[in-house]
Nucleic acid binder design. Structure first.
Length: 670
DNA sequence: GAGCACTGC
């Protein structure tokens, strides 16, 4: 420790502004006082205030890491956990994994010396399965809590429960201004009243605001509503380019199609109207791009060139780009919602919230004063909801219910959620879990099935299929299928200009029986013929990063199963060629049916599908093998409504009698 | 004939 102190007085960090200059430094004493005094501290501060990097260090220096206790800081995203850990380690002059570490899925970079640990909130929930009181932590800081992700909300509920049993635990919540009082009220509810009556939070906690290092952003609205916001956005890009000072532009649209469209229009316009002026460089940004493709937006523009980054919501919170001076906000975002009555997810563009609009505008003021052009009227803005509906109110909650059950929360209905999810969502989740055998008649987790399903990092239906695999003699295969399905569609690389290339590549691996066995084929080729080689992947339009991830996921799932005494015999059936391929294919499809019986459909003469009760018309997604193939009965992984059609994705042929065989209760009526 | 964003000892 002595040598460390000496070092820090001799050297000044060169990479970053000295920490003493950050806005948070002035609040150091007050922050430490509040955390010492109150169980809950809500910290309001923008990105750049230093709350994430400095506060854990203050706490460490103030003695919160003595006697083997550690400070945990959760993030909603993996990248944030790793980058912040790296930065704090630099400031503390240690290697990541020593005094400062991080823990995310597949990567635990911590050691016995670790005192400050950055981790995803999902990961902290995992830890709670083993250590229900999170007893190693003296302080837990939940960063970016205002984003209200599914796991943040579950974590907040769990922390509130833990606080009752561990009053010495300190909880710090980082929030945007708008929601700070909600967080405090949440933790204060159920507390006995005291002398602080009348004040939000009473004696439980306090809110502290730390001013961020932000530059002013001028907000401009349209006078009249725009008829076509993509067109209006492109026009605004050119207006900025010709009339405003230097600085890059960030344009928010809702999805890939709009983005490609806008980029084309910007390129065309730039070529015609401004042949000699400063050039415009339009760049797309959305999650579907590979990491490599995303990196372009971070590179400085060539000389005499203005970057125009055309992005989805990914640039609102997940990705931060320097040098943005102008933001154009279309006022919409695509949002996922789940209908508990039909079991169908929708993905539609909806108006954003005021909080979201503020966040978007803030992206313009990170390096100097900026401007935000909103492609809607001030009147429409006033009508927007304050905040976006939290995920827990619009998601399929099967996994959440399973997780809470595994954490020992028996009464889900009475569980203290920050926002109580609609009862229909909870009921629907229980119905599915019951039909899968994960919970019993008394809504208790079954042993060992339900307990294991909760532990596996898989959706309940896939978890059930995987745990059934040994009895079908296809564990090795279903492990691979489960890993590939976990990639959520990022198996293939989509070529913007050459759509046939992807199709041709798909055809090479196609298996008649459907998408799941095609995935198995791809996985097998990747780990044998492909030799886990990135060039081989590029040649076959496959996403190298995703497939490497599938290998990690498979390894992790296999390790879990091994702990249950379930061994995958890789030597006998690791290739489909070795045993009778058609028999193996049947086993895999039977096994999938045992997990996915609730996602079954029957093909109609016109090639569309009908749900089991006959109510809804479904279409095979064009990315599915079953898009132009014949089948009778199928099971599918995902069902989603886009615009006017309901699509099913990851579709595989099954037999009707398998449905009756593996889910007699579920199908007894029909 | 077509994909918002995240994540799991």
């Amino acid at each position: 420790m002595a040598s460390e102190l000496e070092l820090s007085s001799t050297f000044i960090p060169s990479l970053y502004k000295p920490a003493a200059l950050l806005p948070i430094a002035r609040h150091r004493q007050n922050l430490l006082y509040l955390i010492e005094t109150f169980s809950i501290t809500i910290v309001i501060g923008h990105t750049g205030s230093g709350k994430t990097t400095q506060l854990p260090q203050y706490l460490d220096q103030a003695g919160w890491t003595t006697e083997g206790k550690i400070i945990g800081v959760t993030q909603p995203r993996r990248v944030a956990a790793t980058t912040v850990a790296t930065r704090v380690a630099e400031e503390m002059r240690c290697k990541v994994g020593e005094e400062v570490g991080y823990s995310i899925r597949f990567e635990d970079v911590t050691s016995a010396a670790t005192r400050i640990k950055f981790l995803t909130d999902g990961m902290l929930l995992r830890e709670a399965l083993v250590d229900p009181l999170l007893s190693r932590y003296s302080v837990i800081m939940v960063d970016e809590a205002h984003e209200r992700s599914l796991s943040t909300d579950v974590l907040l509920g769990v922390l509130k429960k833990i606080r009752n049993m561990r009053p010495e635990l300190r909880i710090v919540i980082s929030s945007a201004t708008l929601q700070a009082e909600d967080f405090l009220r949440f933790f204060a509810s159920g507390e006995a009243k005291n002398e602080h009556d009348g004040e939000v939070g009473g004696g439980v906690g306090r809110i502290i605001s730390i001013e961020g290092r932000m530059y002013p952003v001028d907000i401009l609205f349209l006078e009249k509503p725009a008829e076509d916001y993509v067109e209006r956005a492109v026009k605004t890009v050119f207006d900025i380019h010709t009339r405003e000072a230097d600085g890059d532009i960030l344009l928010f649209l809702t999805g890939r199609e709009e983005i490609d469209n806008a980029i084309q229009k910007i390129s065309e316009g730039a070529a015609i109207f401004h042949p000699k002026a400063q050039a415009l460089l339009p760049l797309p940004l959305y999650a579907g791009l590979t990491n490599e493709q995303q990196l372009y937006v971070f590179e400085p523009a060539p000389e005499n060139t203005r970057k125009v980054i055309v992005s989805t919501n990914i640039a609102e919170a997940s990705v931060t780009i320097d040098g943005i001076v102008f933001v154009i906000d279309c006022g919409f975002a695509k949002l996922r919602a789940y209908n508990p009555n039909t079991g169908i997810e929708t993905l539609t563009a909806v108006p954003i919230s005021k909080a979201s609009a503020t966040q978007r505008a803030g992206r313009a003021g990170r390096t100097k004063p900026g401007k935000c052009f909103r492609l809607y009227t001030q009147h429409s803005y006033e009508l927007l909801p304050e905040t976006t509906t939290s995920e827990i109110q619009r998601s399929n909650l099967a996994s959440v219910v399973l997780q809470l059950k595994a954490l020992g929360i028996d009464n889900i209905v009475r569980f203290g959620f920050l926002t109580t999810p609609p009862a229909e969502l909870v009921i629907r989740a229980f119905e599915l879990l019951y039909s899968l055998g994960a919970v019993d008649d008394y809504a208790k987790l079954t042993k060992p099935l339900g307990v294991r399903m909760a532990e596996l990092a898989l959706e309940p239906m896939m978890g059930k299929a995987l745990l059934s695999a040994p009895s079908f003699g296809c564990l090795s295969e279903v492990l691979s299928v489960a890993a590939m399905i976990s990639l959520q569609g990022s198996v293939w690389i989509l070529h913007e200009d050459d759509k046939k290339a992807t199709e041709n590549a798909r055809r090479k691996f196609a298996v008649e029986e459907g998408d799941h066995l095609t995935y198995l084929n791809v996985y097998h080729a990747f780990t044998t013929k492909g030799k886990k080689d990135s060039k081989w992947c590029r040649d076959h339009s496959l996403n190298y990063q995703s497939l490497s991830r599938a290998v990690s996921i498979r390894t992790q799932l296999k390790r879990y199963l091994a702990r249950y005494g379930i061994q995958a015999d890789e030597s006998v059936s690791s290739t489909m060629q070795q045993s009778d391929p058609s028999k193996l294919s049947e086993s895999v499809r039977r096994c999938l049916t045992a997990g996915y019986f609730a996602h079954a459909a029957k093909m109609q003469p016109d090639g569309t599908f009908k749900t089991v009760n006959g109510g809804l018309t479904l279409h095979a997604h064009p990315s599915s093998l079953m898009f132009n193939r014949k089948a009778d009965w199928v099971i599918f992984h995902e069902i989603q409504e886009n615009r006017d059609k309901i699509f099913i994705r990851d579709v595989t042929r099954v037999e009707k009698n398998w449905l009756l065989e593996y889910a007699p209760e579920y199908y007894k009526v029909s």
